[in-house]
Measured scan of single mutants.
Amino acid sequence: TCPLCKTELNIGSKDPPNFNTCTECKNQVCNLCGFNPTPHLTEIQEWLCLNCQTQRA
Rank of each mutant, 00 (worst) to 15 (best):
C52K: 01
V29P: 02
N18D: 11
N31S: 13
P16E: 06
N18T: 08
I11N: 12
H40K: 09
L9Q: 07
S13I: 05
L4E: 04
T42E: 07
C2A: 00
G12H: 06
S13N: 07
I11P: 14
P16A: 03
K14F: 03
C33L: 01
N20T: 13
K26Y: 14
N27V: 15
S13V: 03
P37V: 14
P39F: 12
E8L: 05
T21H: 11
T54G: 12
T7F: 04
K14P: 07
K6Y: 06
L4G: 13
L32R: 15
K26N: 13
F35T: 15
Q53E: 09
L41R: 15
C5V: 00
N18S: 07
F19D: 02
L50N: 12
N10K: 15
C22L: 01
Q45I: 10
L41G: 13
I11F: 09
T54A: 12
G34P: 02
L41E: 10
E8R: 05
D15I: 11
N10E: 10
N27E: 11
Q28P: 08
Q53N: 14
E24V: 11
E46H: 06
G12W: 04
P3A: 05
H40Q: 09
T42Y: 04
L50Q: 14
D15N: 12
I11M: 12
C30F: 00
N20D: 15
C22Q: 01
P37A: 10
S13E: 05
P16V: 03
L41M: 06
P37W: 11
N18M: 01
T7L: 07
L50M: 02
V29I: 05
C33K: 01
Q28E: 06
T54N: 15
C30Q: 02
K14L: 02
H40P: 13
N36R: 12
E8N: 03
T1V: 06
Q53D: 14
I11E: 15
L32S: 14
E43D: 08
P39K: 15
N27Q: 14
C2P: 00
G12V: 03
N10T: 13
Q53G: 10
Q53L: 03
Q53Y: 05
C22P: 00
I44R: 07
N31L: 13
C33G: 02
C22R: 03
N27G: 14
E43A: 10
V29C: 12
T42F: 02
V29F: 05
N18L: 06
V29S: 04
C30G: 02
C30Y: 00
N31W: 06
N31G: 12
L48H: 06
P16H: 11
N31R: 11
K14V: 12
C49S: 00
T42L: 08
L48Y: 08
I11T: 08
F35G: 15
E24N: 06
T21G: 09
V29E: 06
H40Y: 07
N20V: 13
Q53V: 05
P17M: 03
E8M: 11
C22W: 00
T42P: 07
L9G: 10
N27P: 04
Q53R: 14
Q53H: 07
C30S: 03
L4N: 12
I11D: 10
Q28L: 09
E43Y: 03
F19M: 15
L48W: 09
V29N: 06
T21D: 09
L32Q: 15
H40I: 10
P39L: 11
P39H: 03
H40F: 08
T23R: 10
N51R: 06
N18Q: 09
C5M: 00
P3C: 14
E46D: 03
V29R: 07
P17K: 14
P3V: 04
L32W: 11
L50A: 14
K26V: 13
N10Y: 03
C5Y: 00
E46M: 05
Q28F: 06
L4I: 09
T42C: 13
C49D: 02
T38G: 15
F35W: 04
C5F: 00
E46N: 05
N51I: 02
T38I: 07
F35Q: 15
Q53F: 04
N10G: 04
F19R: 05
Q53W: 03
L41S: 12
Q28T: 10
T23P: 07
F35H: 15
T1M: 10
K6L: 03
E24Q: 07
C5T: 00
C52D: 01
C25T: 02
L48A: 09
Q28V: 10
N51M: 02
L4F: 03
T54P: 14
E46V: 10
N10S: 09
S13G: 02
E24T: 12
T21M: 15
W47M: 09
C49T: 00
